[in-house]
């Protein structure tokens, strides 16, 4: 009986100490980790799309509640006016979700550019979305609400050869971005005002 009690006590104490330590460390590192994820996962795509912006879009960001979820928006300033927002959406590709950054000019509702952040597509086939400039460029200048489709589905986007599913995922992510933008536009405009000047 004493042995049993000792086992239970040792395991309990050890587990709670471990849990406490990890919770504390998580609390301490959380902000930094978020910063790192932004910098290394979304950062490259955002900086590429908003290359001409006068500010640092990673630093100038705000979050909005979208139902349950929280969305981050990155602000791009052109000619001193914060009129471009970039945000991330996801759509199912061939190997899981494809993450896409979509940048929109708020005065015209036109897409400034899109860029793939995370994906798990087949190397050499679907993975080309990351590098295929010609494919990605097709979205630039489209209306955000137009809901682009690949030519196979009756749309105007030329899919990457051999990677229709991946191309569809990018179109779907743009479509979702359109919905999200429409839903949150009033609040986005309100937030953007705080970045002007």
């Amino acid at each position: 009986m004493r042995e049993l009690a000792k086992m239970v006590i040792v395991l309990t104490v050890l587990s709670s100490l471990s849990g406490g330590l990890l919770a504390m460390l998580r609390e301490k590192t959380q902000d930094r980790i978020e910063q790192q994820v932004l910098e290394f996962v979304k950062g490259p795509a955002i900086r590429k799309i908003l290359a001409g912006a006068a500010n640092d879009p990673i630093a100038d960001r705000f979050t909005l509640a979208d139902g349950e979820a929280k969305r981050s928006f990155f602000v791009g300033k052109y000619d001193g006016k914060p009129d471009v927002v970039a945000f991330e959406t996801f759509a199912g590709g061939y190997g899981g979700d494809v993450g896409l950054i979509v940048a929109v000019a708020v005065d015209t509702d036109q897409i400034v550019g899109v860029g793939v952040t995370t994906h798990n597509e087949t190397p050499g086939v679907g993975a080309a979305v990351e590098t295929d400039v010609g494919f990605i460029r097709q979205f630039t200048g489209l209306d955000i609400a137009s809901g682009p489709k690949v030519t196979k589905d009756g749309g105007s986007i030329n899919a990457i050869s051999g990677a229709t599913i991946t191309s569809r995922a990018v179109c779907a992510a743009v479509g979702k971005a359109g919905d999200l933008y429409k839903r949150l536009k009033p609040e986005i405009l309100k937030q953007l005002k705080t970045f002007s000047g």
Binding site: L22, L25, R26, T29, R32, I33, Q36, V37, F40
Partner: peptide
């Protein structure tokens, strides 16, 4: 601990 530190400092 290592995982969290790595995420925070050497992403």
């Amino acid at each position: 601990v290592v995982e969290l530190l790595m995420q925070a400092f050497t992403y």
